[in-house]
Nucleic acid binder design. Sequence first.
DNA 1: CTAGCACGATACCCGCAAGGTATCGACTAC
DNA 2: GTAGTCGATACCTTGCGGGTATCGTGCTAG
Lengths: 294, 294
Amino acid sequence: MELRHLRYFQALAETLNFTRAAERLHIAQPPLSRQIQQLEEELGVALLDRGRPLRLTEAGRFFHEHSRTLLEQLGKVCDNTRRIGSGEKAWLGIGFAPSTLYGVLPDLIRRLRSDAGLELGLSEMTTLQQVEALKAGRIDVGFGRIHINDPAIQQEVLTLDPLVAALPAGHPLLPGPVSLTDLAQEPFVLYPGNPRPSYADHVLSLFAAYGLQIEVAQWTNELQTAIGLVAAGIGITLVPASVQVLHRVDIGYAKLQEAQATSPIIISRRVGDASPALTHCLALIEELAEGHIG
Amino acid sequence: MELRHLRYFQALAETLNFTRAAERLHIAQPPLSRQIQQLEEELGVALLDRGRPLRLTEAGRFFHEHSRTLLEQLGKVCDNTRRIGSGEKAWLGIGFAPSTLYGVLPDLIRRLRSDAGLELGLSEMTTLQQVEALKAGRIDVGFGRIHINDPAIQQEVLTLDPLVAALPAGHPLLPGPVSLTDLAQEPFVLYPGNPRPSYADHVLSLFAAYGLQIEVAQWTNELQTAIGLVAAGIGITLVPASVQVLHRVDIGYAKLQEAQATSPIIISRRVGDASPALTHCLALIEELAEGHIG
DNA sequence: CTAGCACGATACCCGCAAGGTATCGACTAC
DNA sequence: GTAGTCGATACCTTGCGGGTATCGTGCTAG
């Protein structure tokens, strides 16, 4: 299938007349017939009722509606690409680990969005994937939670989120505060299971630093799932404090006694990247961070 | 531009290597080079940094990101078109006049959406456009506010919304109830100005039925604008009661003494259209209407 | 009922551009 | 410097998109 097919079908669906559609497309009528036949064949679906008067089938109406919006979107993408290429606009690719979405990131994104000269590209990815994406140029900045050593990547700690324990509602340790020693007695739900290294390793090493070892009752790949399993009583888990915005009646959060039990939000970027968009973004981050503290 | 260009650029952006991308596309490397050059020429933008290692430019990253989602969307559209064509799914095109969105329509849409075997197509259009779209097969059912005589179209009144007066905050006629005679003393903001016949004619004929004539201080094309002008003190207007969900501190609504001053929500459909999706939709509407009354 | 016509499908030809092969040239790495 | 990697260029081939001519069919007017 080619865009030609979409464009031709578009014209045909609007005029419902092969001859006039062909005129509008500045081609003769027979080639149009052929292209439409090809399209129908490739889809394996009749898009038109060939009776008089010509009518779209149900599938045809659906395809018409959606291919139109696709073509419009493509037009906009091309436009914006030209603008970015001519320096009229800038583009900033942002990679983020899911858990960073509960903290300052939404605010940052909102502010960057309000900048008319800036187009944002957001992709959810692990810190490890961020490093790859940075090197490949797919993103310009990443927000993650773990340290990774790579000579081409520069990392900075943005904030230190205190960790809190997520416990099923009615758990005896609630409302806290609790100690790591107490928590180590409980079965854990840890995430993400892969790829490693991950936030899970950060949690494990935290306990190890206190000479503690925890039993992992269940591995999951996502925070949301982990929280669900905690609610179901499978175990407990540690989450960054910002995750507490997830209110659930079947979950309680408890502060930790150990103030140094934290999870960082880490900004990754290419070493030596001094593009204006990135600089602007970093300046905005600085500003937001100061606002938070002050 | 053709889909070929997008697909090729996609592969290239992912591998960042002409030779390997060409392999993946099952073509030789030189044609790939040419197609990419064409794409860049058409966009008038460099998408690649031709140094070693190969890198995407900022515009290239943007185009990569967005063309990927476009291609994915296209894939889904084709899939769903096939499903609809094979009868596995149904499609229902709905046209609606903007003001009907404040009433039962959202609830109906929500329920129809929850039906996995049904794809919805929503288009905002005037009642007049609905008639054309029904005949052309672009939609299967329309929700509007005015009667139109057309032998191919069947119309039924779904509900009769009482009309209420929209007045600027602090207006002496507030909080009502008010009579049409009182209102006829005030300048009016009426909408939509075109195309005619429209809801405005319904309002005019309502006053005419009581032997009253109103002065139209301002015509607008949209309800939102009209409300804004009312708030600005240009005049007053009559709106269906369901519009009152638009709370504004600078607008007050007053009931009318004349209970027969109503605006209908009118369902339009093709005469003799007995498709399962439409039947299902109409049954659901019936159900919702009963729930409203009971 | 039939002649006329409107309109889409079919048949067939032409030219162009997409794809292939061979090769060059530039940058990298040792 | 030299070998190797990889994209660009040159040139050929061919498949396919588009054109013209014509057919077939179903609506319509009388």
